[in-house]
Computed example of a mutant assay.
Amino acid sequence: MITYENLLLNLENGILTITVNRADKLNALNSATISEIKQAIQQVYEDTAVKGVIITGAGPKAFVAGADISEIAELSEVNARSFSERGQEVFSMIERCNKPVIAAINGFALGGGCELAMACHMRVASDNARLGLPEVSLGVLPGYGGTQRLTQLVGKGKAMEMAMTGDMIPAEEAKALGLVNHVVPQEELMSKCLQIMEKIRTKAPLAVGLVIDCVNAVFNKDENGYQTEANAFARLCASEDFVEGTNAFLEKRKPNFTGN
């Protein structure tokens, strides 16, 4: 059994909630927390009891308000690349996970926190949330994939503006830009995430996982996304859930998907 010092994990009805639990530091990501997130996501990959994930932050102020500046201040050119690549690896694990991952952004999502949220498949923000990549104020830039994912989500021009000015944007603007999917009052944040997750859980799990693969393929320069889609479509047509889903539709009943 893994013991976590910086995360709280709660599995209920197949939904694993991962809470970054450093409220006194506004849930800032240090190396230990990054390592724990990697362990937790590896657990998601391996545990068949986990059907979906919600990632959030402890307390009412912050999702994750950046990385631990005291650690960043100690970096040199010699170890900075490995520092960046390690975070990229962990966030790519989230992005590639074949189970849905939703970021419940309950406050500030800045720097590494914004990067963590963008690695999730969807983002739901409370109305007090603020998002941004302020790294240029420290003389660096986003190192956990932020320049890439922000551009994918909001487009080149706005990504350039946000990353070069370091400005924070409010939740409603983030929604208008496509950076977050929904904005709700803070007290409704987790219920909204659970509502979305429960809707996804009524669908075929294998199909949901392959949707994630296909959408991610759009941004993989080494992959033909159309071929990935065709391969996934063919694979699903050989699944038990395909038979169940089509039969249920024709018989006018709810399907009972098993993930096979």
Rank of each mutant, 00 (worst) to 15 (best):
I15S: 07
Q39I: 04
G155D: 09
K99P: 07
P185N: 07
R96H: 14
A117P: 00
P170C: 14
G111C: 15
E229A: 14
M190F: 12
K51I: 02
N106G: 15
G59T: 09
T165I: 03
P255A: 15
E71T: 05
K199P: 00
Q195W: 07
L189N: 00
N216G: 02
A117T: 05
T151G: 10
N247F: 11
E161T: 04
K175N: 10
K175R: 15
V215T: 14
C193W: 02
F249T: 06
N10S: 15
S76I: 05
P134H: 02
E77I: 05
N231R: 13
K25A: 11
K175D: 01
G112D: 06
A163N: 13
T56Y: 00
E135N: 06
G87V: 02
R86V: 00
I212K: 06
N30I: 13
E12C: 09
G57P: 14
G132M: 01
G14P: 11
P255T: 06
Q152N: 12
E36R: 08
V183I: 08
G139Y: 01
E74M: 06
I54G: 03
E188F: 12
E77R: 05
M93D: 10
V180D: 09
A129L: 10
I69P: 13
E240M: 08
S35G: 07
F257G: 01
I54S: 03
Q227A: 13
E187Y: 04
A207T: 03
A23D: 09
A176N: 14
T202Y: 05
Q39T: 07
P100D: 12
L210T: 09
V101K: 04
D24Q: 09
K175Y: 05
L75S: 03
D241L: 10
E240N: 14
C237Q: 14
K158T: 13
C193T: 01
N21A: 15
G225P: 01
G111V: 12
N256I: 07
M1V: 09
D222R: 14
S84P: 00
G112F: 10
L116K: 08
A103R: 02
K99D: 05
D167I: 13
Q152F: 03
E85W: 00
G143D: 00
C237W: 06
E172R: 14
D127N: 15
I169W: 06
Q42G: 02
L236M: 12
P205Q: 04
Q43P: 00
R81A: 07
K99T: 06
G155Q: 12
P60F: 01
E172H: 13
E173S: 07
V184K: 08
